[in-house]
């Protein structure tokens, strides 16, 4: 089980900020495919992953990264701080 977090419009499209996910995916992309297969709202949120960023255990990563040992995955749009 891993914690999956969503922020900004990703959170709005999916309709929740955080959930526990049982996954057999090896990579972030694999997890995204599993989520997209669930429901239309996930399909809508992950329609264009080039518009998204991913963090693994609170470090920026990429969609090819392996999930082995990861406890927390977060998906969000490009950041707009400052």
């Amino acid at each position: 089980m891993i914690d999956v977090l969503y922020f900004a419009w990703v959170r709005e499209r999916i309709g929740l900020p955080k959930e526990r996910v049982e996954t057999s995916a090896d990579t972030v992309s694999g997890l995204v495919e599993e989520l997209k297969a669930r429901e239309a709202r996930y399909e809508a949120a992950f329609a264009d992953t080039s518009a998204l960023r991913v963090a693994l255990d609170q470090e920026l990563s990429d969609f090819d990264a392996p999930l082995a040992g990861v406890r927390e995955v977060a998906f969000f749009p490009p950041m707009t701080g400052g």
Binding site: F76, M79, G81
Partner: peptide
Amino acid sequence: LKSRAPFWKR
């Protein structure tokens, strides 16, 4: 901070 700190403005 603009593009590497996880903030989102609405």
